[in-house]
Design a protein around this nucleic acid. Sequence first.
DNA 1: CGTCATGTTAAGGA
DNA 2: TTCCTTAACATGAC
Length: 284
Amino acid sequence: MPELPEVEVLRCHLEPLLVGKRVTGFQVLKPRVVRPETPRQLQGGVAGCSIKGVGRQGKFLWLDLAKARSRKTFPLTIHLGMTGRLFVQDSDCPLPGHTAAVFGLGRKRLVFRDPRSFGRVTLKTDSLDQLGVDALSGEFTIPKLMDAFSRTSQAVKIRLMDQQHIAGLGNIYACEVLHRARVSPFSAASELRLAKVKALHQAIRVTLQKQIELGSKLKLNFAGEGKSDGLFYFGSTPGQAHQSRERFRVYGREGEACPACGNKIERVEQAKRGTFFCPQCQAG
DNA sequence: CGTCATGTTAAGGA
DNA sequence: TTCCTTAACATGAC
């Protein structure tokens, strides 16, 4: 599910459901998602804790936990990987297939489902420590973006997806942002002039903000059962998938008309990922 | 059968 | 050391 907007919509959804609850149990069904500590170590760390908050930076989500009778909180990091889903359900519901981990919350439970098991649950903070500025925070400024683009030989699209510099953009929104800013994905990041960097900065904020607004308005099925999967780009409730797909300007639209100029959108591979762009609007 | 998919990270090379 | 590229992870959709 997961680029910044999807994770933020999920965070907003979960926060009121989780804050104030106590973790009454913890079960790992797919040990691979707990890394690098063992499931047993993680269990010892979270059992009996209360949830004080739900945070996010980039695509990383975390629960602020506190031991009983303690005010000090520590983050339990959850990353959804490519196919992770996180939702609250009644404890007497059957667990869905591909459930990776379950947090008991009294008569409710928090389920982490992840078919591909690329996601992660951990008390280690290494990943968070290395993360760059969140693309929607006030700290993400034009000078910060200039700095992220300097001293590198990489193409701008690759650099936009580097989470150590800017946290939150993945393959979909990197393509979308570049099209909105009319910047070629193949431009050398370090050679972009200030005007283009400003355009990209604006495009990042607008693209992500609009997508969060869209996701906040849609009725999402966070339980992720069947074809409704709590996503607003590949799924959500029936009849909304098409509508939300129309929100993409170039991603997944190879051969279709560019919404700005009508030319055919192309797809090429960059760093083993698909890059969708309009060769007319985004000329090198 | 084959191709592609929202992501991170370890490993190896320059 | 730093920077960069690639392979690996595991499953489903089409």
